[in-house]
Amino acid sequence: MDERYERYRTMKFELSDSGVLTVTFLRAEKLNAIDAEFHRELSTVFADIGMDRRVRAVVLTGSGRAFCAGGDLEWIAGETPVTRETTFFEARKIVDDLLNVPQPVVAAVNGAAAGYGFTMALMSDFSIVAEDARLSDPHVVIGLVAGDGGAMMWPILVGMARAKRYLLTGDPVEGRVAAEWGLVTEACPVGDVVPRAKEWAERMAASPPAAVQGTKKALNGVLHLLSGVTLDLGFQAERFSAVSEDHQHLVGAALEARARRRAQTAVRQ
């Protein structure tokens, strides 16, 4: 594997002879939730991939039973004003880099995907999801604005009415329903998700790269226009919500509830 990937600790990379790079998130014990290290690495990985001429298509997937559960609550609770500014800088870079990576990206959503984890899937060029996967953007549930890409992607894919219905409540939608709506590319049994994603990636890898990458760039021009408005407003609003009392209270309550569940599970065992 290329030395550019050796520094990554939260992801594993496998490059096939056909040029398909499979990127697997490695925080299975946390449902691949994003902490500071994972977030920092996400802010550089797509630029690194984009400069790797051996790569003709990309598959993103999660280890264990989840794709990516969004932000790790313990990390979020421990943010300071200084680290929070770094986080928002990185968050914008992740979005921009994912839109700019020239190779087609296929998200293999092998389980739950929430918050920015689901946004990464929506911003990918293909999203293959498990039929029973719970997909959501629950920013509002912990007092945050859904400003990191969800407010841009949902209305494009399923219309404003459904976007408001799910972003203003944080309610989940099942994978099979998301496919029926056109929120994702397709849904299939969980065991077929990664193989099916690799089929799409292999097809892209075998296609003329100039034609595929040029078409992707043209299509993503629409997203770049929207990102200049929606993401600027969204990230600005999310910054304010991140220091609100509601956010601090709700994150604390969520962590307390999690601790109680763990204690109850330990007692039963």
Rank of each mutant, 00 (worst) to 15 (best):
L144Q: 01
D97C: 05
K30I: 05
A36L: 08
Y5E: 01
T87G: 09
I49W: 01
M152I: 02
M204V: 08
V105N: 09
E79T: 15
A57G: 10
R262Q: 14
L183G: 01
E186F: 05
L223A: 12
T10R: 06
D97A: 06
A211P: 06
R56I: 07
A266F: 03
S43N: 04
E41T: 12
R203L: 13
L42A: 11
L42C: 14
G234N: 06
F25P: 02
G175I: 10
F118N: 00
L122H: 01
G62T: 06
D52F: 08
V82D: 12
D97I: 04
W154I: 04
R4D: 03
H247G: 05
L231E: 01
S136I: 05
I94T: 03
A130D: 14
W181D: 07
A47S: 11
G50W: 02
H247A: 08
G64C: 06
H249G: 08
N32E: 04
L73W: 08
G150S: 13
V106R: 00
V101S: 07
M152D: 00
M1Q: 12
D35T: 10
K12R: 15
A254H: 10
A211S: 13
A91S: 15
G175P: 14
A266I: 05
V243A: 13
R262M: 12
L167D: 00
E90T: 11
N110Y: 04
L226F: 13
Q213L: 08
A205S: 11
E238P: 02
L99M: 13
E202C: 06
T61M: 08
A57D: 04
A253C: 06
H247I: 06
A36V: 08
L135A: 11
V55F: 05
L73I: 06
A133M: 12
A113E: 00
M160N: 10
K217G: 07
D48G: 02
V59I: 12
A33L: 04
A33C: 11
L31P: 00
N100G: 10
L73E: 05
A107K: 02
V193R: 00
G159Q: 05
T87R: 10
G170N: 04
A133Q: 07
L157R: 06
Q269T: 10
P81H: 08
T230Q: 09
R268E: 15
R239H: 13
V251E: 00
Y5F: 04
L226G: 13
A266W: 03
Q213K: 09
T169S: 04
A36P: 01
Y8A: 11
V59W: 01
G182W: 11
R9H: 14
R165E: 13
R40Q: 11
A242S: 15
A146Q: 00
G111Y: 01
D148H: 03
T61F: 04
G71V: 10
T230Y: 07
P209A: 14
W181L: 14
D97R: 03
A28W: 02
D48Y: 07
F25R: 04
E3H: 14
Q236A: 15
T24R: 03
G143C: 01
E238F: 02
